[in-house]
Amino acid sequence: MIKFSGKTVLNLNINGENLDVVVKPSDTLLYTLRNELGLTGAKPGCENGDCGSCTVLIDDWPIKSCLMLTVEAKDKKITTIEGLKNAPIQKAFVENFAFQCGYCTSGFLMVCNSLALHKPKANNHTIQEWLQSNICRCTGYEEIQSAIKSIINNEI
């Protein structure tokens, strides 16, 4: 049986690297990424699972890191925005002007990257279904949809 009590050194696989980090069982993954590992690409927004700005990939599926305990991520593959190195979706966001203030962008990028991976032939309904997990207060939804569609249709 796995048990964590108090502060513990946990080895996490993040962006292809195995990193040791000190965590408490009550730490959320968002807290650990930002405050213990300096990976500030995942943004704190609502911290209630509503806005999606803290989205990361766990075993390639999007997860809101504010609603995951760090200890749950043991033995999982964690990918943050820092781990997307020149992914096609990043270029697509630039070319489609898919951001304004940029606060929601890393969350949207992670969702879109996972969508392209799991549903390379996603239709409009599926795209909207996935994108509804995230909120853009600048309301740049059309451009974000254009970006993901350009990836899915292999236009770049």
Binding site: F4, S5, K24
Partner: peptide, 21 residues
């Protein structure tokens, strides 16, 4: 952030889980 501390257990069997609870 969760404003209190707790212990985290991850048992592997139903029997262990019920007993642990």
């Amino acid at each position: 952030m969760i404003p209190f501390d707790f212990e985290y257990y991850k048992p592997q069997t139903i029997t262990d889980t019920i007993k642990l609870y």
